[in-house]
């Protein structure tokens, strides 16, 4: 086990009536790539703002690299890089001016840490005299990451860096993260895209201010409590409804061109199901036993009722 980089204990945060964080605890090891996976409103941004000393928690405590977020907030700010979900660089400064600005406030220079950002910054360097506000989405993202890295932080917080980003750019972004991990930076990243979970060392699945599970992606899928069949047939719209009415079915969710049917051990026989669907006039019926993916697991965890409030 690594030593601990980020430690959070019983964090709760309310905004008026809304319980944004509901008694959250976790540890992130040094050098770990740790993902917070959950939809909008799960509490990811609130959590990141508390960890980066920008917001006070109502209850509980947390430390980053041994520093307390309240008492030692200045130390934390020196060793953390933070990329907020909303683009927060200076739109009317150029690419290079932004990077210089962030280097200067952390008492360093672009040249001193150029090695760390080289791979990322080189992609936008041809446009270094362009104002940040005039960059495309993908380029803004690369500039923001360069600025968050320019002081060589020990811990990097990335709040939804891939939201609204197309599938190709998302892949490229995760390749960059892998490289950063390899130089020893601890990375905490949040995302609403379930498929990105498999790229993390460990993930916390979040919903409505709670952490539903924390483990490696492999453990998450390994702990899926039901059996799963992938069912393909011509007409997905009718297929979903018919599968939901089939005896023994626990849940049915669409996954692209197939439906994932969950059931308890021994409840469903593939042959019988196939016969049933053919009787319902489905053609080219394909039924395969499959392993759960992260999204299957997330939806199953969402179906488990939350513990009663104290």
């Amino acid at each position: 086990m690594h030593s601990v980089s980020v430690h959070a204990e019983n964090l709760t945060k309310r905004f008026g009536e809304t319980l944004a964080l509901d008694n959250i605890s976790f540890d992130v090891g040094k050098g770990e790539l740790f993902g917070f996976i959950g939809p909008d409103g799960a509490g990811k941004t609130t959590l990141f703002r508390i960890l980066t000393t920008l917001l006070l928690t109502d209850t509980g405590s947390c430390t980053v690299e041994g520093f307390d977020v309240v008492k030692n907030y200045k130390n934390i700010r020196n060793i953390c890089g933070y990329m907020p979900g909303k683009f927060s660089l200076y739109q009317d400064l150029t690419v290079e001016e932004n990077l210089n600005f962030f280097a200067t406030i952390f008492g360093t220079t672009i040249r001193e840490n150029y090695d760390l950002i080289k791979d990322i910054y080189q992609q936008i360097e041809p446009f270094k005299t362009r104002k940040a506000g005039k960059l495309s989405g993908g380029m803004k993202q690369k500039l923001a990451l360069s600025c968050a890295l320019i002081h060589k932080p020990d811990v990097l917080f990335l709040d939804e860096p891939t939201t609204g980003v197309d599938a190709v750019s998302r892949l490229e972004f995760w390749e960059m993260l892998k490289r950063l991990k390899s130089v020893g930076i601890t990375i905490l990243v949040s995302t609403p895209y379930m498929d990105e979970a498999s790229l993390c060392d460990r993930v916390a699945l979040m919903q409505d201010g709670r952490i539903m599970s924390i483990s490696t992606p492999r453990e998450v899928t390994g702990n899926y409590p039901l059996n799963l069949l992938s069912v393909k047939a011509g007409d997905i719209y009718n297929l979903l409804g018919e599968l939901r009415d089939y005896p023994g079915v626990y849940s049915v969710y669409a996954f692209g061109q197939s439906a994932h049917v969950a059931f308890r051990d021994g409840d469903i026989d593939k042959g019988n199901l196939s016969e049933f669907l053919i009787k319902k006039n489905h053609t080219s019926v394909e039924i395969t036993a499959i392993k759960a993916n992260i999204e299957d697991c997330f939806m199953e965890l969402m179906n488990v009722p939350s513990p009663a409030p104290l």
């Binding site: 719209y237 999204e295 969402m302």
Partner: peptide, 23 residues
Amino acid sequence: EPTGGVDPITRRQFWDMIFEAAH
């Protein structure tokens, strides 16, 4: 981008509504 950031169950319910509208 009607389903950006939406949880996976709601995302599928949303598509049920799309199928219905098309229907």
